[in-house]
Simulated assay, not measured.
Amino acid sequence: MRITTWMKATALSISTLLSTSVLADDPLKVGFVYVGPVGDHGWSYEHDQGRIAMKQHYGDQIETTYVENVAEGADAERVITQLAKSGHDLIFTTSFGFMNPTIKAAKRFPQVKFEHATGYKRSKNVSTYTLRTYEGRYVSGVAAAMATKTNTIGYIASFPIPEVIRDINAVFLGAKSVNPEVKIKIVWVNTWYDPGKESDAANALMDQGVDIILQHTDSPAPLIAAEKRGVMGIGQASDMSHFAPKSHMFSVRNVWGPHYIRSAEKVVNKDWQPEDFWGGFQDDILQIVSINPSLPQELQAAIKATQAKIKSGEFHPFTGPLLDNTGKEVVAAGYTLNDTELASINWYVEGIDATIPN
């Protein structure tokens, strides 16, 4: 993980604070709720890496607990409630489907601070936090469209929620920016983590002529399937390069540690307030990692240049004019969608020949 000036300053301020804090005798208790296993090598894995970074940063001054493989819905509410009951001061719930269970638990435990990943509902003791994954998806679209030989790229989608729809759009916008002939095929698997389903989806896409695989699911199964058939792919959430050394183009990695350290510091300082936090390339919470050295130099340069333009703020993927795939203008010329609008996208951009499932 890159150590930024902000992180060094944060480390110093937290260390100074905790050396004189009551936490020396009464550790801050922080809980995490994961939708998948910590060994998914994707989304939940990286959240747990963030938890570990927090623990390493604080040492004995903090106590962390995690519960993995928690189903979205009633089971999530039960787990979140149990963490709140057992004295946790701060609870992170890390999947979109945990949103309503988090809000319900927060009403019952107003003394506990909650942070929910990728949702949009907040309250006096509930924050939301997410990543600008669309930035990485746009870069992925550029790379996929430059690498494809069939002009057909494939996307394995989890659930038809705004986050996933937004990222499909970002991939296609990036792809069309360098290859007007490119097409995208989408398979919905209705799961975040199911290696069998993910592998089947990858094979189904490759059977339809797809030669670049992208995914919004959490296991490396699609990349492994691509490696077996000599097709290229892009890793999701964590560095997946070791699962498919020939087929792996690069991974878009989520780095949650800085946010978790920052949130804990605010609880300790008693200045935690509900917020809607978005992290991206600009603060290195979203990263392009392990670019395959076998890729053509022109492609490697395009990946880096596109990331740099987004990171600097020179370019935003959702700046108009943009039409949806029915021809309706959804983003006016010169206008850039704000975070609230980005969090509620429910349309496909022009050129995607598909409909969004109910």
Rank of each mutant, 00 (worst) to 15 (best):
V38M: 02
G39C: 03
D40I: 06
D40W: 01
D40C: 08
D40P: 10
H41I: 02
G42S: 10
S44P: 09
Y45G: 09
M54Y: 05
K55E: 15
H57K: 09
Y58V: 08
Q61W: 15
I62Y: 12
I62G: 11
T64S: 12
T64E: 06
E68K: 03
E68F: 03
N69W: 00
V70R: 01
A74M: 11
D75Y: 06
A76C: 06
A76Q: 07
A76F: 12
V79G: 14
T81Q: 05
L83M: 15
L83E: 14
A84S: 12
K85V: 13
S86D: 15
D89H: 07
T93E: 02
T93P: 02
F96M: 00
F96C: 00
G97T: 01
F98T: 11
N100V: 12
P101Q: 09
P101F: 12
T102A: 01
T102L: 00
K104N: 10
A105D: 11
A105M: 06
A106Q: 05
K107T: 01
R108D: 13
F109D: 06
F109H: 04
P110F: 05
P110E: 04
V112R: 04
F114S: 02
T118F: 02
G119E: 01
K121R: 08
K121Q: 10
R122D: 02
R122A: 06
K124Y: 08
N125H: 08
S127T: 07
S127K: 02
T128H: 00
L131W: 07
L131N: 05
L131P: 04
L131G: 01
R132C: 04
T133N: 09
T133F: 15
T133W: 14
Y134N: 07
E135Q: 15
R137T: 08
A143Y: 07
